[in-house]
Simulated assay, not measured.
Amino acid sequence: MPSIWILSDLHIDACPWTPPPGPRVDLAIVAGDVADGLCRRSIPWLAEHVVPRAREVVYVPGNHDLWRTRLPDELDRGRNAAEAAGITLLDSGQACVVDGVEVIGATLWTDYAIGGEGQRALAMRVAGDRQVGMRDHRLVQTRDRLGTPAPFRPPAALALHVEHRARIERRLAEPWAGPRIVVTHHAPHPRSLLHGEVREPIDAAYASDLTALMEGERAPDIWIHGHVHASRDYRVGRTRVLANPRGHDTSFRRRDGPWAVELENPRFDPALVLAL
């Protein structure tokens, strides 16, 4: 069975990073947010630093990968650029097979309902606030159904979530004899949130509750995600949920000389390799 190197949320444009030396693996899975700009930064970085270390590379774009781009256009270009670089880009529920393991991937976005259906409207207002909400809705553009340029507001993210979730569900419903892994950038369960539970409306921009997909007969063996800058390893139903995000590194040298280490996620393991 394949060895799988798991990474996410590297943010190499904000805080440059190079993976430490390590063994070559069968499959590298990167669950989004390498950098701002899928084609300009993320895919070139993966091609330089991850492709040489893995026989196969699967990348699921995160929200930051789409900042300062027009979403459908960037994804179209990204699929071509990824293929040329030897990377499999799974952005909206596509699947690939590596050594008998089916990998299903999608950015997923969110349904804004993790705090309850009654809180969805509030969560969307908070996420979409142009001053203090999610920067995605100021820095990402999209197109409407007619192809006309349009702002990427919370209803657009919700529509993508519905589409991505439906494709994941349809794929999981198909018979498969081997292991299955789902990879999303946004988290699939409230236990992945920063505090391990819903505490405020903005939490709905980071995770949705997809327990139903992990408790059924066709549940994936593993669900890998990013977006929440905290390491996670827990079980829901039949599925192991894993996240290994680097997050931001704001370490600095003090005026008196010593190096001060400030890591957003000190539990990040740059050599996390899963052996199925």
Rank of each mutant, 00 (worst) to 15 (best):
S92Y: 10
R55A: 03
D73I: 13
V162H: 15
P258K: 04
E174V: 12
I181D: 00
V50E: 02
T211N: 09
G178A: 11
R143D: 11
V50F: 01
T142M: 08
R55Q: 01
E48Q: 13
M134N: 09
P16I: 05
P19Q: 08
L7K: 03
T184M: 08
V273T: 07
R145D: 14
S3I: 00
W176M: 11
L213N: 05
H195F: 11
G118I: 02
E197K: 15
G116N: 04
R125S: 13
G37P: 04
R180E: 10
R170Y: 03
E215S: 12
R53C: 01
L213Q: 07
A230H: 12
H195K: 14
L71M: 12
P52F: 00
A260V: 13
D129N: 15
P220A: 10
V101D: 01
D249V: 05
A271R: 14
G226C: 09
A150L: 10
I29K: 00
G32F: 05
L242Q: 09
R145W: 11
A204R: 04
T107G: 02
C39Q: 05
Y206W: 11
D256Q: 08
S231T: 15
Q141C: 09
I114N: 00
P175Q: 05
L160Q: 13
L263F: 06
R171P: 06
L38E: 10
R246T: 04
Y206T: 09
L263A: 08
L122M: 12
W17G: 08
A230G: 15
A127I: 07
L27A: 00
E264D: 09
P16K: 06
P16M: 04
R79P: 02
V228C: 11
P245E: 04
H195R: 13
Q119F: 10
Y112C: 02
V34R: 02
D76M: 14
P72S: 05
V183P: 01
P270R: 00
H229I: 06
I224T: 10
Q119A: 14
R68S: 15
P2K: 00
R254D: 14
V126M: 07
I12W: 02
E174I: 06
P201H: 08
D111P: 06
W259P: 08
H186S: 04
L172F: 07
P175N: 05
L160N: 12
V60Y: 01
P16T: 03
S8V: 04
W223F: 10
M124E: 09
L89I: 06
E163K: 13
I43G: 10
I29P: 00
L194G: 13
Q119H: 11
D13F: 07
E169H: 10
A127Y: 02
F152R: 11
H248L: 15
R40C: 09
L38W: 06
A271V: 11
V140H: 08
N244T: 07
D144P: 09
G37A: 09
P23G: 15
F268C: 03
A205Q: 02
P220E: 05
L194S: 14
E83I: 10
A177I: 09
R153M: 14
V126D: 05
R130V: 13
R170V: 09
L75N: 04
A205R: 04
M124G: 07
R41Q: 15
E117G: 15
W259V: 12
E262T: 12
A85V: 02
H227Q: 05
A207G: 05
A113F: 06
T184L: 07
A123Q: 04
W109L: 06
P2H: 00
R120A: 12
D249C: 08
D111C: 10
L272C: 13
V261K: 14
I104L: 09
